[in-house]
C-alpha cells in the first residue's frame, strides 16, 4: 500500500474509532458512573441513526423524511429521540437489580429492530434510507471529505468527553458513584437513587443516539443490515472494560485499542486459506469474545483504571 493509502486507512480507522469512542463514553456514563447494565446499545444507536437519517436526508417517496434539515439539528434530535427511549426503559428498570435492566435492554433493542424492519413508511424497511448527507459536503469531495468528516467526528468526541468529565466531577457524579458503590448508604443520606439512575441512563442514551447519527452520516446509507447489532453492543462493552470503566480517557483509549485489534483481526483472517476466508468474520467474533474473557479475568481495571476525581473542599464554612 502506498503512503496516501495508509493515510486514508488511518482516517477511516479514526472515523469509526471516534464513533465507537462516543458510544464507549456514553456506556461509561451508564455503567462506569452508574453501574447500569445496558445490553441494548445497538438499539439506541439505531434510533439515533434513523432519526438523523430521516431528518437530514433529501426527500423520498418511499418513507417519511426528506426534511433536509441541517446535520447539527439531526444530531441533536437523534440524541433526544434516543434519550426518550432510554428514559422510558430506565423508568421501569432502574429500581431493580442490574440483571433485570440487562434483560429489558435486550428487549428494547429487539423492539426497535422490529419497528425498523416493519414500519416501512418511517424507515423504508429493509431497503434502508439512502442519500444521507455529510457535513460540508458541498465544499469538499473525495478524500478531503473523509478528512473533514473525521475532524467532525472527533469534535463530537471532544464534546462528549467534556460533558462526561464535567458530569463525573460534578456533585452529581459523586452522588452517582456513591449510589453505584453502596446504594443503601446513598439512599440513607437522602439521595433519590432512582432519579439519579434514570438521569445517568438517559444521558448515556443521548450520546449513544448521537454516535448512531454520526455513523449514518458516515455510511451515507442506513438499513437494518448496515450494522450487526450484537457486534456494536459487544464491541462497546469490550472497549469500555479494556479501557477502564469509570474513566473517560480509558473509554476513548479502549475504543481505539479494541477497534485497532478488531481491524487487525481482519488483516489476519484475510491471510487464511480460501476455505476459511468465508468464515473469517466468525473467527474474528470468536477472538473478540475470548479477548473479553481475558480482559474480565486478568485486566479488569483496564488501561486507565478509575480514579476518583480530587475533592475540592470548599474553604468557606
Amino acid at each position: 500500500m502506498e503512503l496516501p493509502g495508509i493515510a486514508f486507512y488511518i482516517v477511516a480507522f479514526l472515523t469509526m474509532g471516534g464513533i465507537y469512542a462516543i458510544l464507549c463514553l456514553a456506556l461509561n456514563m451508564q455503567w462506569g458512573f452508574g453501574g447500569l447494565f445496558n445490553a441494548g446499545i445497538a438499539g439506541f444507536y439505531a434510533v439515533g441513526a434513523y432519526t438523523a437519517a430521516i431528518l437530514t436526508s433529501a426527500g423520498s417517496s418511499a418513507h417519511l423524511g426528506g426534511f433536509d434539515l441541517p446535520i447539527v439539528v439531526g444530531l441533536i434530535c437523534a440524541g433526544i429521540a434516543s434519550g426518550i427511549v432510554g428514559w422510558a426503559i430506565a423508568r421501569i428498570c432502574v429500581r431493580l437489580k442490574a440483571d433485570y435492566l440487562a434483560m429489558a435492554s435486550i428487549g428494547i433493542a429487539e423492539i426497535i429492530r422490529l419497528a425498523i424492519v416493519n414500519e416501512e413508511w418511517l424507515t423504508n424497511g429493509s431497503l434502508g434510507i439512502s442519500r444521507i448527507p455529510r457535513p460540508l459536503e458541498a465544499f469538499y469531495s473525495g478524500r478531503a471529505a473523509e478528512v473533514v468528516f473525521v475532524v467532525f467526528v472527533w469534535l463530537i468526541v471532544a464534546v462528549t468527553f467534556l460533558v462526561a468529565r464535567r458530569l463525573q466531577q460534578s456533585p452529581w457524579g459523586r452522588v452517582m458513584r456513591a449510589i453505584r458503590d453502596n446504594e443503601e448508604t446513598a439512599a440513607s443520606i437522602g439521595k433519590d437513587v432512582q432519579r439519579f439512575r434514570t438521569e445517568t441512563f438517559v444521558v448515556g442514551s443521548v450520546f449513544m443516539g448521537v454516535a448512531g447519527a454520526l455513523s449514518a452520516h458516515y455510511f451515507k446509507f442506513f438499513s437494518p443490515d448496515a450494522t450487526e447489532p450484537l457486534l456494536i453492543t459487544f464491541l462497546a462493552w469490550v472497549m469500555l472494560i479494556a479501557g477502564g470503566s469509570g474513566n473517560n480517557l480509558g473509554a476513548i483509549a479502549g475504543a481505539l485499542a479494541i477497534w485497532a485489534i478488531w481491524s487487525l483481526t481482519e488483516v489476519v483472517t484475510q491471510q487464511l486459506p480460501p476455505d476459511w476466508a468465508t468464515r473469517s468474520s466468525y473467527i474474528r467474533m470468536l477472538l473478540i469474545g475470548l479477548l473479553l474473557q481475558f480482559v474480565l479475568q486478568r485486566f479488569r481495571s483496564g488501561l486507565f483504571p478509575e480514579k476518583s476525581p480530587k475533592l475540592r473542599i470548599s474553604r468557606e464554612k
Partner: peptide
C-alpha cells in the same frame, strides 16, 4: 454483573 458480561461474551463465542 461481571458474570453477566462474561455470559454475553460466551454467547458470542458459542455462536461464532
Amino acid at each position: 454483573i461481571y458474570t453477566v458480561i462474561a455470559s454475553f461474551g460466551v454467547a458470542l463465542i458459542l455462536r461464532s
